[in-house]
Amino acid sequence: MRIETDQRSSAGAEGPTRTRRFRVFRYKRGDRGPRYETFDVPVEARTTVLDAMRWIQLHVDPSLAIRHSCSHASCGTCGVRVDGREVLMCVTPVEDLGREITVEPVANLPVLTDLVVDMRAFYARYPDEHPLVRESELLPGAKTPEGIATYVRYEDCIECGLCLSACPIAATDDRYVGPAALAAAERIVEERRGADLAALLAWADEPDGVWRCHAIFECTRACPSDVRPAERIMTLRGMLARGHAPMEEAR
């Protein structure tokens, strides 16, 4: 099979399609345990891991379950681990990877099926009493367009769960609140918008909160959205250490 390529935009990507071998993590409810299945997938210069997974769905196994939506790194649904590193499938070119590519769901969250994890265990880590997606404030007299009741403020975090997957402490301690939630808390401290700061800081100032972090910075490296969770955790700690909030020292 030969796939026509657009000569203008794919200079350097010449010749017949090559194939790459994908080792994909498979698990369905009721299975004894997970297994890995291999697929040989034809790839081109700009094929992404997401393209490859969809190719498998279309041509080999429609039951391969994945999550994705936007295809341009803004929805955060397509987070997986490729060769052990946390990435968004939609912006990870196959080109840069090896001959055999291992694709697994993110770590430290329960797998529902194949590459899909149960994100409830991720969202449940956010403190309920501090809503993290906020409405925008409008200038006096400003109006929203027809049909749009209000804008919701965009925050950097795309809730992909990659940071939690990358964290070696989250790997051993399920009680740890994790990078994303702590980073979100720091974001609120930065711009509080009526939040109850003392309560929020008390929430963060817990053995399972900022103090469980060991400044390893894997979360910052994993984050595709430049949230830099580790730096934010450190900043929170600094605030707590300097007594910007009720310190609860010795038990």
């Binding site: 053995p207 103090w211 700690r237 707590l240 250490a241 609860e248 020292e249 010795a250």
Partner: peptide, 8 residues
């Protein structure tokens, strides 16, 4: 409790 800070 911990505190990591005390440790530091």
């Amino acid at each position: 409790m911990l505190s990591g800070l005390a440790l530091l």
